[in-house]
Amino acid sequence: MNSQAAAVEVKGLRMAYDKKLIQEDVDFSVAKGSVFIIMGGSGCGKSTLLKHMIGLLAPAAGQVLYGDTDYWAAEIAEQDAIRRRFGVLFQGAALFSTMTLAENVMLPMRLNGPRGQRRGEQRERAEHLLELVGLAPAADLLPNEISGGMKKRAGLARALALQPEYLFLDEPSAGLDPISSRRLDELILDLRERTGAAVLVVSHELPSLFAIGDDGIFLDAVSKRPIARGAPKQLLESCDHPFVQAFLRREAPPEATSE
């Protein structure tokens, strides 16, 4: 666990769809300026946990604390205020297909940006962010005119539009070639340094996990609870749970705990 102050804290979270339990006893905190990885096999509830954290799905029980405020117990206005501090990159980038990349990046500024900000200023900032992710020449293209990797980077630029305190990235490297994936990892680390945001990443791309993770949690689909805590590198060296070891070493899982 990072020794810096916690930016977001999850306490006693129980995740379930109707009566079907997904995970329980999920407890962790994420320090400011750190990259926290949510790990686990397919179907263990990583993306569901992210949905609980970004306000898309209420948990069955437990708290998600931003500062001292429990998101799910807060008034709607408070929830809106917290959400304005988020930047989210969805698994498929979730770019608005009728808008150009620049318009996509400008959208959060138009909806939640400072009052009185002129369109020209928004466009300037959008171009700056697209340049940051290496997409300046594609600013006026539509999402269907670019590749999957470019979409991910454009989604990241949109997530950064309002200088978020909390950056949530759902499978940022999934489906990317190794070079694009490496570039994206470097970009995430660079952004963490520059903005000091708490970055939460859902991923099972091993090279990425090891490259960017400062801390993390490992969810298990069989026991339906977290089975390990710590940075991916640290877990590789010291965690003795057979499934975690199999996962991080990319080996065949032991029968008793695998999916």
Partner: peptide, 17 residues
Amino acid sequence: ATMQGNEEIDALKTLGV
């Protein structure tokens, strides 16, 4: 429905819209 599948609706919600 396409926007729902592409998570565009989720993206709107996280923007507080």
